[in-house]
C-alpha cells in the first residue's frame, strides 16, 4: 500500500519548519548547524519521495549529493565555530556583534 505523496510533503515541510524554528531561536552555533542539517534533510525527504513518485532516479541521486555537500558545509562550519570560540570565548552567535547589522 503506497503512501500518498502529500504525506511526504507534510512531513518534509514540518521538518523544514522545525529546522527554521531552531535557527531563529537558538543562540548556540552548534545548534544552528544541526538545524541547518534538519532543513537540508527535509529537502532530501522530498527528493527521495518524489523520485519514487516520478519513477526516475534523479531525486535519489541528488539526495546523495546533498548529503555530501551538507557534510562539507559542516566541516567548514565547525572550523569557523572553532575560531569563533578562540576569539570570543564562547560559541554563542549573539556574541559576535562587533559590527552592527
Amino acid at each position: 500500500m503506497a503512501v500518498p505523496a502529500e504525506y511526504y510533503l507534510v512531513l518534509s515541510a514540518g521538518l523544514f519548519c522545525i529546522g527554521l524554528a531552531g535557527i531563529l531561536t537558538r543562540k548556540n552555533a552548534l545548534m544552528f548547524l544541526m538545524s541547518v542539517e534538519l532543513m537540508l534533510n527535509a529537502a532530501n525527504i522530498n527528493f527521495v519521495a518524489f523520485s519514487l513518485y516520478w519513477g526516475n532516479l534523479t531525486g535519489q541521486t541528488f539526495a546523495l549529493f546533498t548529503m555530501a555537500l551538507a557534510a562539507a558545509e559542516v566541516a567548514i562550519g565547525i572550523g569557523i565555530i572553532l575560531v569563533l570560540y578562540r576569539n570570543f570565548g564562547d560559541v554563542d552567535v549573539t556574541d559576535a556583534v562587533g559590527m552592527r547589522w
Binding site: S12, G19, A42, N44, N46, F47, F50, G59, F62, G77
Partner: peptide, 16 residues
C-alpha cells in the same frame, strides 16, 4: 548555510 538549505528545499519542490 541557511540560504543553501532554502535553495535545496526550493529545488526539491521544483523537482516534486
Amino acid at each position: 548555510a541557511l540560504s543553501s538549505s532554502f535553495f535545496a528545499y526550493g529545488i526539491s519542490l521544483v523537482y516534486a
